[in-house]
């Protein structure tokens, strides 16, 4: 049986793996079969990850994180988890291939999945002018009229990126101001190909086999109007990916996995969670990486306490007490 299995291969998963591997816990990291590297794999330049003043491409950053995790002995498996058993001292992870892995502790870092608009025509038009990946599909919209739905950093990045190809990029946003960072907003405002459609939501997507327009509904007046489009890119946020742990771990009202205080400890002893799957607010590559660190350190404490006790619950409360004592000591020191 292994000491630790990490599920997820974004910044949280790989950072947890770097720390766990350097603690000589020989982590097994389940990277997924087709989403290795997580959300950053579909982004272009990452400008806010410290240490890369000239920016770094998302896939390059993830490749480096993986190399760093592997350098210290992380074993990476390219498969998907289909079933989890979390209760008790042995955590059991079943993969798509049928392979089963067991460990004393588990870090859950599955991130989040693109939020859908929730329209009935979404399924059929997906891949036919309706896209969730600007870097993948922008190329096919040369000299076209397209729109991005959303008002956050991802929406601004996608809209700006898509102007490389499209003649016109509308940004459709429900409110009259953006959530995106000031620098991303300004870049979009300054781009002559981008036009903002404020206080509007997509009420319907039109197209027979291929998107040819949308119905917009004004969120203030309720008025509707049609807009001709060749393509629609959706960037309205993400939802934590928790389907594997429904009924097994406590969740928060926001739908993220509940953890104790600033730790990564979930409602089950020996199971830790990190990254976007516990974070409804910040959701940055850097905060995810930090959260992965916390999870690896918590797991390390837990495994050390497990050596001296008989049950996972005892180990959990012991490592918790040790952490609290250490925190109080640190606080006393600085004051």
């Amino acid at each position: 049986m292994r000491d630790i299995i990490i599920i997820g291969s974004g910044p949280a998963g790989f950072t947890a793996a770097i720390y766990a591997a350097r603690a000589e816990l020989k982590p097994l990291l389940i990277a997924s079969s087709v989403e290795i590297g997580g959300e950053l794999m579909n982004t272009t330049e990452v400008e806010n990850f410290p240490g890369f003043p000239e920016a770094i491409m998302g896939p390059d950053l993830m490749g480096k994180m993986q190399a760093q995790a592997e350098r210290f002995g992380t074993e990476v498996v390219y498969d998907d988890v289909v079933e989890l058993e979390l209760e008790g001292p042995v955590k059991r992870v079943e993969l798509g291939s049928g392979e089963v892995h067991e460990a004393k502790s588990l870090i859950f870092a599955t991130g989040s999945a693109y939020r859908k608009l929730g329209l009935p025509e979404e399924e059929v038009l997906s891949g036919h002018g309706l896209s969730w990946c600007a870097t993948c599909d922008g190329f096919f919209f040369r000299e076209k009229q397209i729109a991005v739905v959303g008002g956050g950093d991802s929406a601004m990045e996608e809209a700006t990126f898509l102007t490389r190809f499209a003649d016109k990029v509308y940004v459709i946003h429900r409110r009259d101001s953006l959530k995106a960072s000031k620098i991303m907003q300004q870049r979009a405002f300054d781009n002559p190909k981008i036009e903002f459609i404020w206080n509007s939501e997509v009420a319907a997507i039109h197209g027979d086999g291929q998107v040819n327009g949308v119905t917009l509904r004004d969120t203030v007046t309720g008025d509707v109007r049609a807009l001709d489009l060749d393509g629609l890119f959706v960037a309205i946020g993400n939802d934590p990916r928790t389907h594997l742990v429904h009924g097994k771990l406590d969740l928060t009202p926001e739908g993220t996995i509940a953890v104790h205080g600033r730790s990564s400890r979930t409602s089950v002893a020996g199971v830790f969670a990190a990254g976007d799957v516990i974070d409804p607010f910040y959701r940055q590559a850097v905060t995810a990486a930090g959260s992965g660190t916390v999870a690896a350190l918590d797991a390390e404490h837990y495994l050390a306490a497990l050596e001296d006790t008989s049950s996972p619950e005892e180990a959990e409360s012991e490592s918790e007490a040790a952490e609290e004592a250490a925190a109080i000591a640190r606080f006393a020191e600085v004051n």
């Binding site: 079969s33 087709v34 989403e35 794999m41 579909n42 896939p59 870097t135 993948c136 190329f139």
Partner: peptide, 14 residues
Amino acid sequence: WAEWCGPCRAVSPI
């Protein structure tokens, strides 16, 4: 597929 498409590269070994 294309080189710049991450999901394309990921699914290629499958």
